[in-house]
């Protein structure tokens, strides 16, 4: 196959930028699935919810989607904490999280999607912001702002999360709850409370990721489904709960997907994440930076 050099360079750059965005999408799952062992397959649905919140505020008040998302984060936190409480009382405490807990999140995914379809229809929605449209040109490189801005904010978010996890008491308690609940209890910390906080944070990141999503591409309710495979592939490849690993894996997946869609056509891109996932599970289940 003949391919031009600038096509290759541009594919790699857009892959890295998209990878930054994927990192924000996956950060929540790295927290919930990677650290807390809660298989929240409804996470993409919350991301879509974030997209629609950004969309509604943007079209009615004209506020910047990222700003909206940051303001909405506490709301998402409360939503997440509430969902964890239900999950804990109904499943985790009874030891039924494997089968019924999964079905619960699957149902949540489904309810969110159908409700959005009923309310907004299946039309694609998009937002307006100053950085959507223009792009930077360096020689043959082409960097669209609509992907660059989410990528940079996403890296900020990941850094902030990493600092919270490693430097603050709550963050360390979250890391500890993954390792030994009993020991945490002996330190007079309530593991359920810590898990609730962590799950709330995980859902709060979905608000921001949703805003990024609708900045990058038009959104309709079932778009989230494409992200399920991606999100879990990145989470597993990154080493289940390691945020630096998540960023590396996300960029890797972004580059491979972008190369695939540049040289084989965009209709093949969704298969890439699954290939990644299966390969990781078969070869190195611990991931790149596994604990």
């Amino acid at each position: 196959m003949i391919f031009s050099f600038d096509l290759l360079i541009n594919a790699i750059i857009s892959g890295i930028l998209i990878g930054g965005f994927y990192a924000a999408v996956t950060a929540g799952v790295s927290l919930s699935f990677g650290i807390l062992d809660i298989v929240n397959i409804a996470h993409p649905a919350f991301i879509i919810l974030g997209s629609y919140v950004a969309y509604i505020v943007n079209t009615t008040l004209g506020v910047d989607p990222i700003l909206t998302a940051i303001v909405a984060m506490p709301l998402f936190y409360v939503l997440g904490a509430g969902i964890y409480q239900i999950y804990y009382v109904a499943f985790e405490r009874r030891g039924q999280e494997s089968l019924r807990g999964l079905a619960f999140f699957f149902g949540l995914l489904f309810i969110t999607e159908v409700t959005l379809v009923l309310y907004f229809g299946v039309d694609y929605r998009y937002v307006d912001a100053r950085y959507i449209g223009p792009s930077w040109h360096f020689g043959m490189m082409d960097v669209p702002f609509r992907i660059l801005v989410p990528c940079l904010v996403s890296l900020l978010l990941i850094t902030a999360l990493q600092l919270i996890l490693t430097k603050t008491f709550i963050g360390r308690a979250i890391m500890a709850v993954a390792q030994d609940q009993l020991a945490l209890r002996l330190m007079a910390v309530d593991p359920i409370r810590i898990k609730r906080i962590a799950f709330g944070i995980s859902i709060a990141t979905a608000s921001l990721a949703g805003a990024f999503l609708i900045i990058i591409q038009p959104v309709e309710p079932s778009v989230g489904r494409e992200y399920i495979g991606r999100v879990f592939a990145i989470c597993v490849l990154g080493g289940m709960g390691s945020l630096p690993g998540t960023v590396i894996a996300a960029m890797l997946l972004g580059i491979v997907e972008s190369l695939t869609s540049t040289f084989y056509g965009p209709s093949w891109a969704p298969a890439v994440s699954f290939g990644f996932l299966l390969l990781t599970l078969a070869v190195r289940p611990a991931g790149l930076l596994g604990r």
Partner: peptide
């Protein structure tokens, strides 16, 4: 998760 991705 793998079954979910299989469908895609």
């Amino acid at each position: 998760i793998a079954t979910l991705a299989l469908a895609v």
